[in-house]
Design a protein around this nucleic acid. Structure first.
Lengths: 149, 149
DNA sequence: CAGTACTCGTTGCAAATGTGACGATCTATT
DNA sequence: AATAGATCGTCACATTTGCAACGAGTACTG
C-alpha cells in the first residue's frame, strides 16, 4: 500500500472547469453571434455596444465599457462603426467637455428592438432545450460563480 | 388593459445567458492564465497544447486541435513554440509521412506535472469557494449545456 | 490661480488570431 | 499505374485585439 504525494494526477482537460466553461461559453456565443453577424453584419463589440445603449439610453463610452465588460479601445472602435452606420449619435457634454453622450438613433433603436427580441427568443430556446432542471442549475451555478468574481 | 406584442421587452445584458457565460468563463480563465503566464510564460494555446499532450502522451497536431478545441494554426504555432523550448519533440510517422507524432520531452513533462497539480488546486479552490451546492449546480448546468452542443 | 495629477476618448504600434492557399503525402477509383 | 480528391501541417496575408502614449479637458492642492 502506498500513497505517493508526488504521483501525477493527470489533468483531464475536458473535465477541467475553466476549459469547460470556456468551451460552452464560446459555443453559445458563436451561435448567437452568427445571428447578428448574418442579419446585421455586427461584430461582438458592436452588438454589445448596441445592447448596452439600448438598455440604458444615454451613456458615455466609458460607461458602455463598464456595463458590457469591454476595453476602452473596443468600445471606441465599435462606437465609431455604429456612428458610421448612423445607428448612434454623439453629443459633447456641456458640463464636462471630455465626455461624449451617446445614444441610439431611430435606426439604431429599431435594430436594437429587433435584436433584443431575437436575443430573448434565442435565450428562451436555449433554456427550453436545457429543460427546467438544467435551466435552474445553470442559472444557479452561474450566479454562484458571479458572486465570487 | 392591453397586451401589446410589439412592445419592446428590453434586453438586460447582465441577465442574458450568453453574456453571463462569457463573462464568467473569461474571468475564470484569466485568473488561471495569470498563473501559467507568470510562472512559465505560457500562452493559452500553449497551455492547452501542453495539457493535451500531457494527458494523451503521443498525438498529432490535428488530434491536439480536436481534443482542445483549437484551430489548426493555433496548434501549429503553439507546437512550434513548445518545441523551441524543448518541451516537446516531433517525429515524422513512418506509416504516414504527412503526420508528426508529438510528445513531451522530460522537461515538458515536468512542467506539465507541476501545472497539472496547480490546475487541480485552482479548480479545487474555485469549487470550494462555490460551496458544495454551487459546485453541484455549476457542474450540472454545464453538463446540461454540453449535452446540447 | 498656478501647478500637478487625474479622466476621457483616440490613435499608433505590436501581438494574437483567422483565412486561404500551398507542397507534400496518402487514398480511392478506374 | 495513373489520376483525382482528400488530409496534414505550414505560411503569407488581412483582421482583430491589447497596450502605451497622446491631446484635450477637469479636479485637486497649495
Amino acid at each position: 500500500m502506498e500513497s505517493d504525494m508526488t504521483e501525477t494526477l493527470p489533468l483531464i482537460l475536458e473535465d477541467f472547469i475553466p476549459y469547460r466553461l470556456n468551451k460552452a461559453a464560446e459555443a453559445v456565443s458563436q451561435r448567437f453571434a452568427g445571428i447578428y453577424r448574418d442579419r446585421y453584419g455586427l461584430t461582438r463589440p458592436e452588438w454589445r455596444t448596441l445592447a448596452t445603449l439600448g438598455q440604458f439610453g444615454i451613456l458615455t463610452a466609458t460607461a458602455i465599457g463598464t456595463h458590457s465588460s469591454m476595453h476602452k479601445t473596443k468600445v471606441s472602435r465599435a462606437v465609431f462603426t455604429l456612428e458610421s452606420r448612423r445607428w448612434l449619435s454623439r453629443k459633447r457634454d456641456d458640463m464636462d467637455r471630455r465626455i461624449e453622450n451617446l445614444q441610439l438613433t431611430p435606426a439604431g433603436r429599431k435594430a436594437y428592438t429587433e435584436l433584443a427580441k431575437v436575443a430573448h427568443l434565442f435565450e428562451a430556446e436555449l433554456l427550453s432545450n436545457l429543460g427546467s432542471k438544467g435551466e435552474k442549475e445553470l442559472k444557479a451555478g452561474l450566479a454562484a460563480l458571479e458572486a465570487l468574481l
